[in-house]
Nucleic acid binder design. Structure first.
Ligand code: MN
Ligand code: MN
Ligand code: ZN
Ligand code: ZN
Lengths: 136, 136
DNA sequence: GCCGTAGTGAGTTGCGTTCTCAATAGCGCC
DNA sequence: GGCGCTATTGAGAACGCAACTCACTACGGC
């Protein structure tokens, strides 16, 4: 059996490109709408498929929001974590020693680490200012 | 206007009790099934309502799994985090200085902290042993 | 015991995501 | 360039979790 060939398609490229252009986390549906608005006829299923592929290869970050999963392009395949503004979605990649602690805590409890989830949410300076100026 | 009275019902007690008896994280549906199996006629909606109430008061922990939210009873209202076995669901409450990290990176980036998510997954010693003995 | 109303539960709805499958289009090969 | 195989696509259906609806129930203050 030979190699399984992964074909290069316009759709996959379009999803990657659109994701790169989005600075904040975005949902599959919003990305789909954005693509359609720009004339693409791409299907929603394909957007989901492409985003899932990108997240599996580490090209995209995923986080679970209350309404579903959000995606974000992430060139560096390095594992890292995010600080996300709950109001505007502005996102900063941050460095924290989680991995060390995962290792430590796992060892203490006889676990073999598999994965971990760490996402930090807050309000960015701008949104916090807006919030303060508005009555509550 | 007087106080809003929260009435004490069999159903709420049953949910709390069933949740206490479950050592691992459990879904609302599984908890509902468990209750029905034991003769209860409680409705699924009530299970969801009760679990949401418990999580809001801090009596229950919630975590987002791939298939939905999982609940776990948690006497201590203290904020903490979990190390969960991906195979059997065994859960350990662990202490990690996440709060410090949140403070630090928020300050660095001009964010006002709101909340954070930290869940660690691995395989407990038992499940790891089983995995090793089985052919991959 | 009576009453007002919070709570319940069967069924329905909503919504994000995945699945189905016939049609399309990469791409290795000639 | 053309052929053939099959990975990929997209419209729509299906799925699963969670919330909602609303008539009915039962808690608890009196
Ligand atoms: Mn990232
Ligand atoms: Mn806990
Ligand atoms: Zn913001
Ligand atoms: Zn285990």
């Amino acid at each position: 059996m030979v190699e399984v060939t992964h074909r290069q398609t316009e759709q996959k490229a379009a999803v990657r490109s659109a994701l790169e252009k989005s600075t904040d986390f975005i949902s599959a549906q919003d990305l789909h709408a954005r693509l359609r608005d720009k004339g693409s006829t791409i299907g929603l299923a394909t957007v989901y498929r492409s985003l899932n592929d990108l997240s599996q290869t580490g090209e995209a970050d995923v986080l679970q929001s209350g309404t579903g999963q959000l995606f974000r392009y992430c060139g560096s395949g390095e594992h890292h974590h995010h600080l996300v503004c709950v109001d505007c979605g502005k996102t900063v990649e941050v460095e924290v020693p989680v991995e060390e602690w995962v290792q430590k805590v796992s060892q203490t409890n006889g676990f073999t680490p598999v994965r971990h989830v760490l996402d930090m949410y807050g309000r960015c300076a701008d949104c916090e200012a807006i919030r303060r100026s508005t009555a509550r």
